[in-house]
């Protein structure tokens, strides 16, 4: 059997913040979300990738979900910078996105609230091909 190990390894993953702030009863106002991606690097070559999803449904609720994943790229010295950048910017974000999506659905699966499912994201387009 071949070796399918990835050079990109996920060390830890945690939710930093899960907030739901009720403003009013269910309405038909438009739902707006903002997605923020923050990537940091520490001295041990560990990347911290944080996805922050802010949502507002006017007069009904505000919500925020922050999710952080800690990644390491094995044998980084053998990879060119662009490949490492793509692994973190694209693959790491793509790995975290389903967990963020699932948590949003769980958070909005409440009485008198429409449950929300984020669509699939084209991560390549988010960060440029």
């Amino acid at each position: 059997m071949g070796n399918f190990n990835s050079v990109l390894t996920l060390q830890k993953m945690v939710f930093d913040r899960i907030e739901f702030d009720r403003k009013g009863f269910k309405n038909t106002n438009e739902l707006k979300f903002g997605l923020q991606v923050q990537i940091g690097l520490d001295k041990n070559d560990t990347y911290k990738v944080t996805l922050v999803l802010n949502g507002t449904k006017q007069d009904e609720y505000n919500m925020e979900i922050s999710l952080s994943g800690f990644f390491k790229v094995e044998e980084q010295e053998k990879l060119d910078d662009k490949m490492v950048q793509d692994l973190i910017n694209k693959n790491a974000v793509a790995i975290l996105m389903p967990y963020l999506r699932s948590e949003l659905t769980l958070l909005t699966a409440q009485p008198d609230t429409d449950s929300v499912v984020l669509p699939p994201f084209n991560i390549n387009k988010m960060f440029g091909n």
Partner: peptide, 17 residues
Amino acid sequence: HYNGECYKPIAEAMGTI
């Protein structure tokens, strides 16, 4: 490290949905 201060920012992206 969990503390964000240990991480030097290298990339950021924002968007609205």
